[in-house]
Design a protein around this nucleic acid. Structure first.
Length: 398
RNA sequence: GCACCGAUGGCGAAGUGGCUAACGCGCUGGUCUGCAAAACCAGUAUUCAUGGGUUCAAAUCCCAUUCGGUGCUCCA
């Protein structure tokens, strides 16, 4: 999670610590005769009492015969689809003794109970994987709305599963990778994050190694741009061509607005991304043409800050993250899985790199290009790329 | 088998009734540069899985087919 720059939740709730809330919820349903107890002591939800059942997953249960497919090991439920709220313990099974009798919670009830406890009876947003829509989320809705008579969640976000190299990820397909696997193969954490977040959650993402390369390159472009703005010297007022693009300020503002509007439209990250790249081109172009005004640079940096508040890829933490993955591999005895060029690329520290660049700058000043190029070649071989620009010498790790 | 969702350039991917089909990567040519890199400019889908239909107008709506994802039993 941290490697990908994902923030920790404010609350992490555990089902086993919320048994009383669940019991209370089931009792509320029982008071309305929506929950009922069977002979073995389990409690079930009476789906017949919730006509809207199936509204989320667009399932139409009309015409599906109750009892057409009743499992032999099920107890005497009133209807086959009624789901368990509380399960009586099987002999020797771990259980809680509560007002409902001994037992353990059914799946579904803990989500309703904990959501209500921390977020209230009607929540704004409920997220989950597409596989949970039915029956889990459908059952959450049923038990929550019957208990409170309020809409349970105003918006649902169901994230689609990703494909890996065009196929569903599975161990038998051999395309199952953990984050650490990818880091050890030499992929950057930022590229993984950017690839995952570049396709809107509602759409299926095809996660490929080509895609990781693409993301790496796209991030490089953004970081180069960011560094250029941050470290360049820009005119305070219009002169010598700076500020000659009268339209630029408007374009930067429009990019920021388009970025926000795209995210507000069901988190359309692909469109939000596009808005930023539009701005990058416009500002780079103006910078090449005659220079930028400080005010334009500040505005563009403002849009980048907006962008990075969501995408979080501009600051280069990749080397540090990869190093900690390597430390993990070391401890686990899995260094053999690390890509050889990865070790080579991390051989030099930032200080060593900067010392070499300083030496190269001296050589170039004396027009000793042979020495300068030799240093550049050495750095390239160790995974460090050099860029000479009007704004100074920049370097980055491959 | 049934239900729901999806299929857009070499690759990834926006766009869901009407401006030249965004954006990124890649590729080709050019500008710039001591050489590079970066950056910029130009080019790169007469066409949106296939077949039919609706409409003055369809990538966008409807039907069928093909392919892919999820669910349809338990457990979380």
């Amino acid at each position: 999670m941290e490697s990908l720059g994902i923030e920790r939740p404010e609350h992490i709730a555990r089902a086993t610590e919320h048994i009383p809330e669940m019991v209370e919820l089931i009792q509320a349903l029982a008071a309305k005769d929506i929950a009922y107890q069977t002979e073995d002591g389990s409690w079930y939800f009476r789906i017949a009492r919730f006509p809207e059942y199936g509204k989320l997953s667009k399932k139409d249960f009309e015409g599906i015969e109750d009892g057409a497919r009743v499992d032999v090991d099920e107890y005497e439920k009133d209807a086959a689809r009624d789901f368990a709220l509380w399960k009586a313990p099987k002999p020797g099974e771990h259980h809680w003794d509560t007002a409902l009798g001994a037992g353990r919670p059914g799946w579904h009830i803990e989500c309703s109970a904990m959501a209500m406890r921390y977020l209230g009876a009607d929540i704004d947003l409920h997220a989950g994987g597409e596989d949970l829509m039915f029956p889990h989320h459908e059952n959450e809705i049923a038990q929550s709305e019957c208990a409170t008579d309020k809409p349970f969640a105003r918006h649902w976000m169901h994230v689609r599963f990703l494909l890996v190299e065009g196929k569903k990820m599975s161990k038998s397909e051999g395309n199952f990778y953990t984050l650490r696997d990818l880091l050890l193969k030499g992929h950057k954490a930022s590229a993984i994050r950017f690839l995952l977040v570049s396709v809107p959650y509602r759409h299926q993402l095809n996660f490929t190694f080509d895609g990781l390369t693409e993301s790496t390159n796209a991030i490089e472009r953004l970081r180069t741009f960011y560094q250029r703005l941050k470290h360049g010297k820009w005119a305070e007022s219009a002169a010598d061509g700076a500020g000659s693009d009268a339209d630029l300020a408007g374009q930067i503002r429009a990019a920021g607005e388009k970025f926000t509007a795209a995210l507000e439209n069901d988190l359309n990250t692909a469109e939000a991304r596009a808005a930023v790249f539009d701005m990058v081109r416009a500002v780079n172009s103006a910078a090449d043409a005659g220079g930028l005004l400080k005010s334009e640079v500040d505005a563009a940096l403002g849009v980048l800050a907006l962008f990075d508040g969501v995408f979080a890829v501009l600051e280069d933490k990749d080397a540090a993250i990869t190093r900690s993955a390597l430390e993990w591999a070391e401890r686990e005895g899995r260094m053999g899985e690390a890509a050889p060029e990865l070790l080579a690329n991390l051989a030099l520290s930032d200080e060593q790199i900067e010392a070499l660049i300083e030496e190269r700058n001296m050589a170039r000043k004396q027009r000793n290009f042979a020495r300068g190029d030799a240093i550049r070649k050495e750095l390239t071989e160790k995974g460090v790329l050099i860029e000479d620009s009007k704004e100074g010498v920049r370097w980055k790790r491959k």
